[in-house]
């Protein structure tokens, strides 16, 4: 019972912050509430018995990706107009498509699945560890390579071309 209560609190928190991310007109507010969503998802991982995933969710998403997004927001917006600049397209068709998708998904979930618990008691972390150096070692190594390439690639892409001098905030050629 207590578990269910905790779960619903976490679910409400996650969905609430996700709503703010999706609907807010202020991009800074969006970014910070995405932080909340990510933490909420990490908590859900924890509740489902996936401790390791909860930890890497916090470390990589909250620690890494969020910082990147915040930097991007700050670098691409001048500080003075921090309050505006999250213009949207017309909301109606987007909302219609999203609701349609949601409907189909919910139908599938509630009528297509056996009601079963999603919690697992087994200790997943040692299994993941073994799998990473055992059956999945090739993808593991390959993803290391991908990360390296992404790192170098993003440095190359984001590098300021030396040929033209730009002052801070100036974006003209």
């Amino acid at each position: 019972m207590a578990e269910a209560v905790v779960f619903y609190i976490i679910a409400a928190f996650t969905i609430g912050t996700a709503c703010v991310t999706a609907f807010s007109g202020n991009i800074i507010r969006s970014a910070f509430s995405l932080l909340g969503t990510l933490v909420g998802v990490a908590a859900m991982f924890g509740m489902m018995g996936a401790d390791f995933l909860a930890v890497i969710q916090v470390m990589i998403y909250v620690g890494g990706v969020m910082v990147l997004i915040l930097f991007a927001v700050m670098l691409t917006h001048r500080i003075k107009d921090v309050n505006v600049s999250n213009r949207s397209l017309p909301a109606f068709p987007g909302a219609a498509v999203a609701v349609l998708v949601l409907g189909v998904l919910l139908y599938g979930i509630w009528y297509g699945l056996p009601g079963d618990t999603a919690r697992v008691e087994a200790k997943m972390t040692p299994l993941i560890g073994k799998a990473l150096v055992g059956s999945h070692v090739l993808p593991f190594l390959a993803s290391g390579l991908v990360l390296l390439i992404a790192l170098i690639g993003s440095v190359v892409i984001a590098r300021r071309e030396e040929t033209f001098v730009c002052g801070p905030g100036e974006a003209k050629r």
Binding site: A11, M48, L89, V99, V101, L105, W110, A118
Partner: peptide, 25 residues
């Protein structure tokens, strides 16, 4: 905590993400 509840949360998150991608510039 049933599987369906968890999946429902995921479905809602997915739709919100989709909406966000579609409507934002």
């Amino acid at each position: 905590m049933s599987a369906q509840a968890v999946l429902t949360v995921a479905a809602v998150l997915f739709s919100l993400g989709l909406y966000c991608v579609i409507t934002r510039r």
